[in-house]
């Protein structure tokens, strides 16, 4: 299957990664080669095989509902590119949630 530059551009937008036209032109054929190589997983993935999302079959790992100390507001904001009034400041948002 051939992955077009348009398709790669759509994926990049979905992944919020700005790509230059040169990057797009380079990435598309590379991804195509990789996808071609990995597609062979379907050769042996029969309907009767259970998929594994984890290495081991462990279940029910829970934490007791007990309060632990939070970090300070200062620590929370310590890495913020921009802050205001104890909050993280971000540019205007276009899309609604």
């Amino acid at each position: 299957m051939a992955l077009s530059t348009d398709e790669v551009a759509r994926l990049a937008a979905l992944a919020r990664v700005d790509l230059s036209p040169e990057e797009l032109a380079k990435l598309a054929p590379q991804l195509d080669v990789i996808l071609d190589a990995v597609a062979r997983v379907s050769e042996i993935a029969g309907d009767d095989i259970k998929p594994s999302s984890h290495a081991f079959e462990i279940t029910n790992v829970f934490r007791p509902d007990e309060v632990r100390p939070s970090i300070s507001q200062e620590a929370a904001l310590s890495g913020a590119p921009a802050e205001e009034d104890g909050k993280f400041r971000v540019p205007r948002i276009l899309e609604e949630d």
């Binding site: 937008a13 919020r16 700005d18 790509l19 971000v90 540019p91 948002i93």
Partner: peptide, 17 residues
């Protein structure tokens, strides 16, 4: 983040660069 760009654009540019 030059004051004109949106959050979405800034995210794209940040992750791209």
């Amino acid at each position: 983040d030059d004051g004109t760009r949106s959050m979405e654009e800034v995210m794209n540019l940040t992750r791209g660069a």
